[in-house]
Design a protein around this nucleic acid. Sequence first.
DNA 1: ATCAGTTCTAGTCAATTTGACTATAACTAA
DNA 2: TTAGTTATAGTCAAATTGACTAGAACTGAT
Lengths: 238, 238
Amino acid sequence: MTVYSTSANVSERATAAPSLAISTVIFALRPSESSGRPTLWLPLVRRIREPYKDLWALPGGPLTHVESLPDAASRNLRETTGLTPSYLEQLYAFGGLHRSPTQRVVSIVYWALVQPTEAALADESENVKWFRADKVGDLAFDHNAIVEYALRRLRNKLAYGSVAYHFLGEYFTLAQVREVYEAVLDTRLDPANFRRQLKSTPEIEETGEYLQGGKHRPPRLYRFTGRPGLDPDNRSTP
Amino acid sequence: MTVYSTSANVSERATAAPSLAISTVIFALRPSESSGRPTLWLPLVRRIREPYKDLWALPGGPLTHVESLPDAASRNLRETTGLTPSYLEQLYAFGGLHRSPTQRVVSIVYWALVQPTEAALADESENVKWFRADKVGDLAFDHNAIVEYALRRLRNKLAYGSVAYHFLGEYFTLAQVREVYEAVLDTRLDPANFRRQLKSTPEIEETGEYLQGGKHRPPRLYRFTGRPGLDPDNRSTP
DNA sequence: ATCAGTTCTAGTCAATTTGACTATAACTAA
DNA sequence: TTAGTTATAGTCAAATTGACTAGAACTGAT
């Protein structure tokens, strides 16, 4: 089985550029099956051909000539899960020599966050399944390393940045933000101190609304007004 | 002038993968020509063919089949400047549709830091020249945007991370570290407070040595003992 | 209607960190 | 010997953080 396309000849094999693929690590919060508290999940697709046939892998595919890198990432995200991300950022380009046993492939990997309302509608099937981020099992290629790195970046970015809000809808309670932090960082945080910190950041705006229908005192709803970040792609998410 | 290689046919043009290149933004500190204080510089190469003939551009070239991404970055860094970096990290993959007017190119860009002893030996020629990082002029392709982004990342990383020491040799004074911060962030920092902070980080080790030969009280020399960082390539720099 | 249970929210207080500043030590050059 | 300069330690108030207390506001059970 040869891995080079149709009309390539021997001299081209030596110099031909490695092929380019786009993959995406998609994170969403879902209630844990045991505790009911939100935990971090991601969708994987089952490989239907060699190499690594029948193993789970990150959604991905080749980059076509007519689309930008983030467009390609969005597209294969939509194609495999039906989802539209609320946040999409380039993670890393993985280009090790032996990532794929049959071919030299450089994968540019994106990571995406989707809101739970979106995530609930996600397509799931025989070949697309959601896994807890800390229990993905053995994946195809170097995808375990990629998922681990994506998790590190997510945790790191959460500490400094403004990503937490992209897991949530437009309006949210401060306790929901805390739950995002607790799920992603896998810790418990003091509710009173956490809200004091959030209230001191100018990017979080108090609204007049309250979340009704809960079992206890209705919490006030807030809105995030910050700007994306320093990613050069910078989808100005309208 | 066609941009596709020899035996490509029409149908391949539509689906052929975009070509892959590696570029590097190389930072080093050099004494400013005016004040003598260290400032941030980077080497650029003059383009000797179209497109953008005669404009300055980042060092770079195609990725060959037999080298990893960081190896390719090191190689073209060495080939253009003769330098060996003390720090090398992936910056970003740039893949906009119209980065090059003649061809679809995806560039995986690395950024490197070199120590001043190294940087002093750097090759300079008609076609390789060093520029102040804030005065590079109009560059080829999207390289102005790339340099700007590299600067943002460098500044950002300096605040949290451990990059500053890679601008310096194995032994350094705390004032030298401060000069790195001042050069990169373009501010002045209080010497006393700055050293208090450094001394509270466990990764900086006091040595028994002092830097002799200065004009004033000889400062103590320190050593950095921290580990690289969370980059997946992670050259464990022996 | 009342009360127990729970979460939301504001606040207190000591410990730690930060920013502005002062003072002394240790060297060189004149 | 002294003036000039950098290195280094320390002081003090302001700001931030972590642990904790307590009242407000709701639901569901009695």
